[in-house]
């Protein structure tokens, strides 16, 4: 009885070990199963999903116009204080004073890509970009001003 159990254990053990080795052996002989993504080399073909949240950007059209009215909804929505909107008073052609953004300051180093600012924006002025290569040598470079120099508010956006 003891011997039967003893050799039964040995048989089962060796069998289980061989079954395990079969799995690794299979992958060793099937190199097409390799799943490595050679990241910096596949940059050309690497396509991020369009919903991927990499950083906040402010799209500008060809006339260097953006849609940000400076309402600060995103600034309030942001949990981390990532966004700081600096406004200025601008005198329009008809003489009225209007609040316009001077600088849309975005601290990428504080951002957690939670998307709440994009959701909060009433005029769809900011979107999430798919760029994810953010590493820089100096942390200060992560402070970005999203509106381009001399850009204007798009016509019809209030």
């Amino acid at each position: 009885m003891f011997l039967k159990e003893y050799f039964g254990t040995i048989y089962k053990s060796i069998k289980s070990l061989l079954v395990g080795m079969k799995v690794t052996g299979y992958y060793f002989t099937h190199l097409d199963e390799i799943k490595t993504e050679e990241y910096p080399d596949n940059r050309a073909t690497l396509k991020m999903f369009d919903r991927f949240r990499g950083e906040v950007v402010m799209p500008h059209d060809d006339n260097n116009e953006h849609r940000c009215t400076g309402c600060q909804a995103c600034e309030i929505a942001c949990p981390n204080g990532t966004i700081k909107i600096i406004t200025k008073q601008e005198i329009l052609e008809d003489g009225k004073k209007k609040k316009r953004i001077d600088a849309f300051v975005y601290h990428l180093d504080l951002c957690t890509m939670c998307n709440l600012c994009v959701v909060a924006c009433p005029s769809d002025a900011i979107v999430m970009a798919q760029n994810f290569e953010h590493s820089v040598y100096d942390k200060k470079q992560l402070k970005k001003i999203l509106n381009q120099p001399d850009s204007k508010l798009m016509q019809g956006v209030e």
């Binding site: 690794t24 052996g25 992958y27 060793f28 190199l31 199963e33 390799i34 799943k35 490595t36 050679e38």
Partner: peptide, 12 residues
């Protein structure tokens, strides 16, 4: 060997 068994490319 390790890489191929682990569906990786290994040193390249």
């Amino acid at each position: 060997v390790a890489a191929f068994m682990e569906i990786r490319l290994g040193p390249n």
